[in-house]
Design a binder for these strands. Structure first.
Length: 826
DNA sequence: TGTATCTAGTTTTTT
DNA sequence: ACTAGATACA
């Protein structure tokens, strides 16, 4: 346990006598890296002292400015690596920043312990001061799953019908309160009355329960630190002195708690540099306050405001289109991006009959760009991305790309560590490391099924509560008292014994890891090693094996099962990078991503939110229809504010593109199983005509874009919206295909040799792949599961899938069913 | 306890 | 259309 007394002992804070500022300034080395900066960047980098707000538009080199600034702080001797607090939102951003600082200085930066995400830094701080909020320093960090389970228990204990009052709603409320840095006693009465008049009370009960469990949720990490800083000026003062310079990335995304945390830390020296772009604030819905960036100058009078406006990413047309759209927002600080880049292609706009056609068109467009088209050089699929508003839009693309055999990768969706099997496995590891982790026990006690249902679990709960012990111990007592009979008792016995052996093995490994005769912190002498000499990796395999968890998925015939086994294998592999299970668990609590290196080139499909901070030479922006984008819900719930956030999202989308940006919309789209017609997005009208090339046939609604004067009368509406009035003739699909615009588009398309065979490697494989199947074969497909081959057409197979129905799929995406199960871990 | 059936709710997501 | 989660039934 680290109390405040250990403060000075920690290496991150170790302070040898520090040379005076002057002495260090004298020692400053030349700063060649400054020559790489443009004047604005240089200004932001060289203003080292006092508050600085760097307004950095998309693609203006803000990361470069930020990292150079850090390098400059170090190089001028203003601060040592461990005196700089540099906060980001994602681990990825933190990693990137570390790498780039090192590169700028041309040497590895050892020990920048305070460069990381808000949460990672707060964990470090909170472990030192846990006792100030009644926690022990080895508290666990709950993920949203645990959090929800806990809330459900409290809700049913309070006799609330969680059907009318869903736990998720309460979780959302509590999250929102924590984002605003409101502890249970600080929630305004009006707000606390939410959730059937019980919100405030349940929040309090939840916080109490967390303390009992020695646990925190993500919001607590910030909330606890803010309240510690507020209640203990001495603690705050230490850190104010220690963190001599503060840098914040993506400042527009900070919530109130993060803002307060920063303001407290910077209050004394005010050496704080915030980098952000109000035009890219797209996380209002999860508590981000654009207001934080808008009022920086008020909070820090005399702040230097630097605008980075020279863009190094996109062509002028793309920038102009983005600027045109974002100009529609009223509450902005105002920036105008410019570039020295060559003109390039206009932003392209195309309308489609429906969502499937949109996917088909984009698929073909991607293939022709990949081959090289209109004299353009061939492009890698890695250079292309499809950015959607909502993840359900991805399906159309996945379906289409699977059919034509276009490799794609979907970013987003459930992340690795959020998958069920990974969480289950982690719960097993948790119970092995800490037998008193009740939430972990609850998760695994009947997974896989052990015949321990609600009743048995209630008995365990009772036994544990009446003896005041953790659940696992309660289970042991229950068994001793013969309070459980039958199959369940035998299974529980096995589980309890296994947990004991695993824990012993963990302790044993700890012994190996430490000194021979080291004393364990809990004073327990390990039982004689029933699992001798196991590394933590081997132990993990043993745990998954003995628990029956691996077998559970091996016996599962669902299409996901092989993938889940694969993931478990991946998890065990990830363990190799750690010294022990404890370290791994700590790491995973905060790092939810697990990026595996990809070899094959693939088109990226992701949401607009996910794309922030990324860039691609070629970007497709489908689904620009009113209601979908801007999202109806956003507008209904947040009015103009919501619409402006959607508009910023559009701005983010367009500015991801370096060279080619294609916006599209469909007149009809299937949503929740219903066909819906919609109008092109209002954002389309905001695109400046001079920078847009319209591919849409004028017969299609929206084809009137850019020809307002000509087309207003009979042209235009009616295609998609029934609302536009019955007087309009409803265009047919044939009309569209006969329209001049469509023909022109077709003509353009045929300029490139469509018949040209696909990449030779792929076609060779295709032929080979297809020849290995015949009708009647049972096959397995990663997404669709098992099915029977009904016929063969070219390189595609007609397959009747057991779950997904009949599909045409390229042969190389399919394996023989008997091979699918072979590749099992362990 | 395990399975079959129904019912409601479907934006965006990091830590 | 689809899925997750809860309830009904074997």
């Amino acid at each position: 346990m680290r109390a405040m007394s250990s403060f000075d002992e920690n290496d991150a804070f170790e302070s040898a006598a520090r040379p005076s500022l002057a002495a260090r300034a004298m020692a400053a080395r030349p700063a060649p890296y400054l020559d790489d900066l443009n004047p604005a960047q240089r200004e932001a980098v060289e203003a080292l002292d006092g508050p600085v707000l760097m307004l950095a538009g998309a693609g203006t080199g803000k990361t470069k400015a930020l990292t150079t600034r850090i390098a400059h702080l170090l190089n001028t001797g203003r601060a040592r690596p461990n005196e700089i607090l540099a906060v980001t939102f994602t681990n990825k951003a933190a990693r990137e920043m570390k790498e780039r600082v090192a590169r700028t200085l041309g040497q590895s930066v050892e020990g920048m312990p305070w460069m990381g995400t808000f949460h990672a830094i707060c964990v470090k701080l909170l472990r030192r001061h846990a006792e100030l909020v009644d926690l022990k320093s080895n508290f666990t960090i709950l993920d949203t799953d645990d959090q929800l389970r806990l809330l459900k228990q409290l809700i049913s204990a309070a006799n609330i019908d969680d059907k009318r009052w869903p736990a998720r709603m309460l979780a959302g409320l509590i999250d929102g309160w924590k984002n605003r840095a409101w502890g249970p006693s600080q929630v305004p009465a009006g707000e606390a009355a939410a959730y059937n008049n019980m919100g405030g009370e349940l929040y309090e009960a939840y916080q109490r329960r967390l303390v009992e469990l020695n646990a925190v949720d993500f919001g607590d990490l910030l909330l606890h630190m803010v309240s510690i800083f507020q209640k203990h000026p001495d603690v705050l003062a230490q850190y104010q002195r220690w963190f001599r310079y503060i840098l914040v990335d993506e400042y527009q995304d900070t919530n109130v708690a993060q803002y307060l945390w920063l303001r407290l830390l910077a209050a004394d020296h005010k050496n704080i540099c915030c980098v952000g772009d109000d035009d890219q604030s797209i996380y209002g819905w999860r508590g981000a306050e654009v207001g934080n960036i808008l009022r920086f100058e008020k909070d820090f009078p005399g702040a230097k405001v630097v605008r980075l406006e020279q863009n190094y990413r996109s062509t002028p047309h793309i920038l102009a289109a983005a600027s045109g759209v974002i100009a529609g927002n009223r509450s902005r600080l105002g920036k105008e991006l410019w570039t020295e880049a060559q003109e390039g292609e206009k932003v392209r706009l195309i309308g489609h009959w429906d969502g499937e056609e949109e996917a088909r068109w984009i698929g073909e467009e991607i293939e022709s760009l990949q081959r090289g088209t209109r004299g353009l050089p061939p492009r890698s699929l890695d250079d292309m991305a499809i950015l959607v508003r909502a993840s359900h839009q991805m399906r159309a693309f996945e379906d289409r790309f699977l059919t034509i055999g276009l490799p794609y990768r979907v970013i987003g969706g459930p992340r690795f560590y959020e998958r069920m099997e990974i969480r289950d496995a982690m719960a097993y590891f948790r119970i092995a490391v800490s037998p008193d982790d009740d939430l972990a026990f609850e998760r695994i006690v009947n997974t896989p099924k052990r015949g321990l249902g609600d009743k048995a679990q209630q008995k365990i709960q009772m036994a544990a509560r009446s003896n005041g012990v953790p659940l696992l111990e309660g289970a042991r007592i229950l068994l001793e008292e013969k309070g459980l009979g039958g199959k369940g008792a035998a299974e529980l016995r096995k589980l309890v014994d296994a947990c004991a052996r695993w824990h012993a093995a963990v302790l044993n490994a700890q012994l190996d890891f430490l000194d021979e005769d080291a004393v364990l912190d809990d004073g327990l002498v390990p039982l004689q090693p029933p699992l001798p000499g196991l590394s933590h990796v081997e132990l993990a395999e043993v745990i998954l094996d003995e628990s029956g968890y691996t077998a559970h998925w091996q016996n599962d015939k669902s299409p996901e099962a092989p993938g889940r086994l694969e993931n478990l294998k991946e998890l065990v592999k990830a363990l190799e990078n750690f010294d022990n299970l404890q370290g791994f668990l700590e790491h995973v609590a905060l790092i939810m991503d697990n990026e595996q290196e990809e070899t094959e080139e693939k088109v990226t499909i992701m949401t607009l939110h996910g794309a922030k901070g990324l860039e691609f030479p070629v970007v497709f922006l489908p689904g620009w229809e009113d209601g979908l984008f801007p999202s109806q819900r956003s507008m209904d719930e947040n009015g103009l504010k919501g619409l402006e956030e959607e508009r910023r999202l559009a701005y983010v989308g367009i500015t991801r593109a370096e060279e080619l940006c294609t916006i599209s919309f469909a007149a009809n789209r299937r949503l929740y199983g219903q066909w819906q017609s919609s109008m092109p997005s209002r954002f389309i009208d905001e695109l400046p005509e001079d920078h847009v090339e319209v591919l849409t046939p004028p017969g299609l609604y929206g084809g009137g874009y850019g020809a307002a004067g000509l087309n207003t009368g009979s042209m235009g509406a009616g295609f998609g919206t029934g609302l536009a009035g019955g007087m309009e003739q409803r265009a047919t699909k044939a009309d569209v295909y006969n329209s001049p615009g469509w023909k022109r588009m077709q003509a353009r398309r045929s300029e490139r040799p469509l018949s040209q065979p696909r990449e030779s490697r792929a076609s060779a494989i295709d032929l080979e792949a297809v020849s290995s199947f015949t009708a009647g074969n049972r096959v397995f497909h990663q997404k669709f599961g098992y099915g029977i081959v009904m016929g063969i057409e070219g390189d595609k197979l007609d397959i009747a899938f057991e779950k997904a129905g009949a599909k045409k799929v390229v042969a190389r995406f399919v394996v023989a069913a008997d091979q699918a199960g072979d590749d099992v871990p362990f």
